[in-house]
Design a protein around this nucleic acid. Structure first.
Lengths: 121, 121
DNA sequence: CAGTATCCCGATTGATACTG
DNA sequence: CAGTATCAATCGGGATACTG
């Protein structure tokens, strides 16, 4: 974790949402309905089970995500956004739109940086 | 760098703004006026020169920050937001507000996590 | 003043295998 | 299905010292 206490709201928010996969997880949960673990794993391509569970736990600790366990066999667990999570997603919407607008440009600068020297930065 | 290509705008945006000090740097530059290197160093407490320059260079590569060099002695360099940077800051505003609202709660969960086991998470 | 250059440690991530 | 455990590799980031 970065510094604490936070100097402005922005760094606190980035600390919550800044994990490597959290943006994608939030995005996947954005429709409001509950999602099962395996479902999320499919919606976040490339994530390992370890990372997925870890990031989910952190989001849960921040009370952004709710985890509902069904004691059945086979096991079933559902993840969904909390009220706080929904408000976070709303605050994130303009940033998502900005990113969508500049997505290909950002990819291009990353590709260029890689072409020049730094192996994958 | 995370994955590429990005799956949604949000992960691209987080990739731009997600560095350890970038939120603070963007915040410091938010007033629109140019800022000198030493000035930024003072406004971002705890950052080393190495990290500050590194994060600034990345923001520059993403064309979010403009770097103006004055060939003088002693040297003078000014950093400012580009047009793209200003639009990013606007997109970031709701997130900053969200973070400001929940700042103390986020700090509390971090402190609690630390108290239980994990040294600084 | 505004950087560069090294060294180095530890947290973060990834791969793989195993389990209730 | 939904995790846990372990190990290894990487990478971010801090400290320190030097330079145009």
């Amino acid at each position: 974790m970065p510094r604490q206490p936070y100097l402005c709201g922005l760094d606190a928010a980035v600390d919550v949402v800044g994990g490597k996969w959290k943006a994608l997880i939030l995005w996947a949960l954005a429709d409001g309905g509950p999602h099962r673990f395996g479902e999320l794993k499919r919606q976040v391509p490339g994530v390992s089970e370890k990372m997925l569970i870890q990031q989910l736990r952190e989001l849960e600790a921040d009370e952004v995500v709710h985890r509902e366990v069904y004691h059945q066999v086979p096991p079933k667990v559902e993840y969904s956004l909390t009220e706080l999570g929904r408000s976070l997603n709303q605050a994130l919407a303009p940033l998502g739109a900005w990113g969508a607008r500049h997505k290909s440009f950002i990819e291009a600068t990353r590709a260029a940086a890689e072409a020049a020297g730094q192996p994958a930065r």
